[in-house]
Each structure stands twice: as structure tokens, then as C-alpha cells.
Simulated scan of single mutants.
Amino acid sequence: MLSDRSYMRDSYGRTTTSTLTWMLCALTAGFLIQTVFERALGSPHFNQFTALSLGGLQRIWLWTFVTYPLLHSNVLHWLASLVTLFFLGRELLPLMGERRFAWFSAFSAVCGGLVWLLVPHGSGGALIGATPIVCALLMLFACLHPNRALPFLFFFMPVTVRPKHLAWAVAGISALGLAVSEIPGDRFNLGIAHSAHLGGMLAALLYYRFVHLREWRTPDGRADIELPRWLSKTAKVAPAAEPAKYTVNVTAPTRESLKAEVDRILDKINSEGLAALTAQEKRLLDDARNQISRR
């Protein structure tokens, strides 16, 4: 009918703001508020209530586990976090989905904070910055695309690096910094939270091992992809039950039922990402695409 067409309706569909955009805006707003309180007002209260510290946890300020990424030490620190978060998030958000990307970022921040708390920092130490989330996204990207070529300019010279090598380099630098800077104490501390960076990378490995590999499975119980060889050579994945709310009828007899199944799968991709699809759902999408191409 004519009234079913989009341009004849009273209201048009609106595109929602992505989780990545909200995160970038939150980092920018947090840094601006921090700058106003510190430099314009000369007040440390905003940092005290948002930065992660042992004193804050003693007051049961649990929200600081997810608010400390909003603060940064300077403009360069904030800008580096913003740019790397944008490029890595742009690659991973379509695969993970909006909700899972947000939960993964929060989980990375919590893991980074927990590992940082295990290292003694003396009195008055506080953790700020979104670098643990960035390190987690880098490690997850390296797990998913270990050999993908990443070209960039290094002192105006084109250089190509693989994500697995970049992740190893960042992990090695963080481990070295933890050993020679954080653990020795205040005398050698350079003000860089290497332990939090390692905590974010640990969160990515846990997610990849226990969440991602459990969902990309074939009907015979084997994973479609294995844990990268540069991380582990003997990874075994236990079978996981598929969610009941996204059951798919592969033998859809009519065009209407096939369209309904495809719409349900597309809704699942929009909410949970491509990684949440089962082998049956992927085959059904391929069948629907073949039917459309034969018309």
C-alpha cells in the first residue's frame, strides 16, 4: 500500500547515537570538567570523587572503578586516549554490538583498577586515564586480527606493523615499567600506571577466551576459530548452550516466515554484534542472500 512507504509516513526513523560516540563525549566532558575544577576553581574535589584510590575504596566509593577513565593528566594524555579509542572502537563495535562493547569497556576499566590496586603505591596514589580500556581494545583486536597489516607513519616514514606484534610490544613495555617503575616505589615511579595497562589486556584475554570463543561454534561443538598461536597452543573450549530467545527455523517454507527469521537475526546483530550469531543463523542469512540474488 502507498501508506506503507517510508516517505508517506508521518515520522521518519532516527539513527541512534553509538556507544563509541557516547564514550568519546564522556571522555571529553570529563577532561573539561577536570580542567575547570583544577585550573579555574583550584579545587581538587572532582578528582577526589572520580579518581580510583585506596582511600576512596575505604570510603566505599565503588563508582570510581568506572569513573577514573574520565580523568587525564594533560591534554596529550587525553588526546592519545581519544584517538586510539576511536580507531580501535570503530573496528570492534560492529563485531561486538553496542551493549557488549559498553560492558566490555567497563569490565576492562574494572580489571585495570583491580590490578593497579594490587601494586603498592604509597599514600595518596590515584589512578586516572582511559588507557586500560585502550589496551584492552588493542589486545582484543590482536586476538581477532593477529596478522592484519596496519600501515602508519613513523617520523614521516611509512611503516607496516601487525596487531599481534604491537600488542606484544605494549605488553612487554608495560611489564618492564611495572618491574622497574611501579614496584620499586616512589623513588623510581614515573607516574605511568603500567599495572593498569596489563589489567586491561588481561580483561581482553578473558573476554576472548571465555566469551568470544564460546559463541563462535559449529554444530559439532568445535570453535570456528581457535585461540591465537601466539597466545596459546592448547586451548579447549567447552560447549555452550545457545540462547532460547533467538531460535531459528532453518527450513522456513514461505517467504513471509523467512523474512521474519531474517529480521530477527538482524535485530540480534544490532543488539549483540556479529559474534553472537550461531552457525545456523549464519547459514540462514546465506540462504536468504542467495534467494534474493536469484530473483
Rank of each mutant, 00 (worst) to 15 (best):
W22Y: 06
A102Y: 15
L71D: 00
F188N: 07
E98T: 01
C25A: 15
V36N: 06
P228A: 00
E272R: 08
L20K: 09
T64V: 08
L144P: 01
T19A: 14
L20S: 09
R217W: 00
S232D: 04
F46P: 03
S257H: 13
A126S: 14
G172N: 05
I33Q: 05
F188H: 12
A80W: 14
D263R: 13
E226T: 11
T16Y: 11
F46V: 05
G199V: 02
K268T: 05
I292L: 15
A51P: 07
N249Q: 11
H212A: 14
L198D: 00
R148P: 01
F49H: 06
F210Q: 07
A136S: 14
L198F: 01
V83D: 02
N189T: 07
L190I: 14
I133S: 03
L138G: 08
E91Y: 14
L202P: 00
R99H: 10
S105T: 05
R214E: 01
R294K: 12
R39F: 13
S18K: 06
L227E: 06
A149L: 13
E38K: 15
R255F: 14
T16H: 12
E242H: 04
Y208Q: 05
C25P: 02
I292S: 12
P158W: 04
T50D: 05
S271F: 05
A276R: 11
L62Q: 04
W216S: 10
E215T: 12
M23T: 03
L266P: 00
G42W: 11
I128V: 14
L71I: 10
L85V: 07
T131Y: 15
Y246K: 01
K164D: 00
G55H: 11
E226V: 09
L93R: 08
D263A: 15
S81I: 01
F31K: 03
H72D: 09
G177S: 06
A109P: 03
F101C: 09
Q34C: 07
F31A: 03
P184Y: 11
F210N: 06
D263Y: 12
F101Y: 13
I133P: 00
L52C: 06
L274T: 00
R209E: 02
G30R: 00
V248F: 05
H121L: 07
E261D: 01
H72K: 06
G129A: 11
Y208G: 07
V110Q: 03
R187P: 07
R187E: 03
P253H: 09
A29M: 12
V211W: 13
G221I: 09
R283L: 11
L54V: 09
E261Y: 01
